[in-house]
């Protein structure tokens, strides 16, 4: 991967609060769903919202309002017709994209829900990880209001969950990654040592990328729990906030937001910082100087998402805007 998209090509505005999650739609990945602390979920078409446009909420396709609290995570089904969203209201919302209505709402968690993911054969289950330290697995096919299963091994808040083929990964604030294998009936517990904030798995499924609150992102071997690579930088700060990190561009780059409003891109193999971006100024930062002193509370990049089909990625910040970065025209 020689080139990394560094030019902002779209700016999605309209949220009144911090954007906690950003997610590309499935398939061609031409749409972006954003969830914010203003309790709304917005569906954008980034191609209709160039940076130069001045119309308010350019590219907005739809708005989903049912949450009573902040929206913390969104997962889109493969068929693109449904998505789930979770947040502060301890409820998993299962949405129909077209009608902007909830099909189901699953309650059962005792606390804020931090993360959600589709899984299973034909996206038949939804996994949600909550502040109450459990991962609950819900059935989208049946009308049962109870979870299929509750994984309550975690000793602390579950911050991220990933569902693969016959396995579920959960990262928790107790500093552990639990890998539940349905086939083997085993659960591998890997100790990271620091509260885990983000979890993503490579395409092959043999490595997982773990963000933890020691300002380090680690690439772990899932087979034996060994550390493959650690990604750090002098300016990279992740000590108190939940900041998403992700693998992208055919698993060649590690992209992560940070507590101070910067976005970092590391080379996966080398572990070198490729690019640094300042989200609020929509530009790349060169040189050693990472963050200037003018850091305010809203200056945080809580979520990043990388498009799987194009050379494009998005960063969501505390100012309520989502910047889509692409290649030069």
């Amino acid at each position: 991967m020689s080139s990394f998209p560094t030019t902002p090509i779209a700016k999605l505005t309209g949220h009144a609060g911090i954007v906690h999650c950003v997610s590309y739609s499935a398939g061609s990945q031409s749409y972006i769903l954003t969830g914010s602390s203003d309790r709304t979920i917005r569906l954008f078409n980034p191609s209709k919202a160039p940076v130069s446009s001045t119309t308010p909420a350019a590219g907005l396709v739809n708005k989903y309002t049912a949450h009573g609290y902040e929206v913390l995570s969104i997962a889109v089904a493969d068929a693109n017709d449904k998505f789930v969203s979770v947040g502060g209201d301890k409820t998993v919302f299962y949405w129909d994209v077209q009608t902007a209505q909830t099909i189901k709402r699953w309650t059962g968690h005792a606390g804020r829900i931090n993360c959600c993911a589709f899984g299973g054969d034909g996206d038949s289950v939804v996994a949600s990880g909550s502040f109450d330290g459990t991962v609950k697995i819900w059935d989208t096919k049946s009308t049962n209001y109870k979870p299929i299963m509750t994984l309550e091994e975690a000793k602390d808040s579950v911050s991220d969950v990933w569902v693969g083929d016959g396995e579920i990964l959960s990262g928790s604030v107790d500093g552990r990654i639990r890998s539940y294998d349905f086939r083997m009936g085993m659960c591998n517990v890997d100790v990271v040592g620091y509260p885990v904030t983000s979890l993503s798995v490579s395409k092959k499924g043999t490595e997982c990328l773990v963000s933890s609150l020691d300002s380090t992102i680690r690439l772990m071997d899932r087979d034996n729990g060994q550390l493959l690579k650690a990604y750090r930088d002098d300016g990279y700060v992740n000590k108190e906030l939940r900041v998403k990190s992700t693998l992208g561009f055919n698993d060649s780059v590690v992209v992560s937001g940070s507590d101070d409003g910067m976005v970092y891109a590391w080379d996966l193999l080398e572990g070198e910082v490729l690019h640094k971006f300042r989200h609020s100024e929509m530009k790349e930062v060169k040189g050693k100087k990472a963050a200037d002193g003018t850091r305010n509370k809203k200056d945080v990049v809580g979520a990043v998402a990388v498009c799987k089909t194009r050379k494009e990625w998005a960063s969501a910040g505390g100012d309520g805007n989502v910047i889509v970065w692409g290649m030069d025209a």
């Binding site: 899984g119 054969d121 289950v125 539940y180 349905f182 591998n188 517990v189 990271v192 729990g225 550390l227």
Partner: peptide, 24 residues
């Protein structure tokens, strides 16, 4: 990281879950 940090605990997925995941 490695064997020192890894522990294995038994885990019993419910049958319905395995069915949904199309897993024996």
């Amino acid at each position: 990281y490695g064997p020192m940090t890894r522990s294995v605990i038994p885990f019993y997925p419910t049958r319905l879950l395995c069915k949904r995941f199309n897993v024996k």
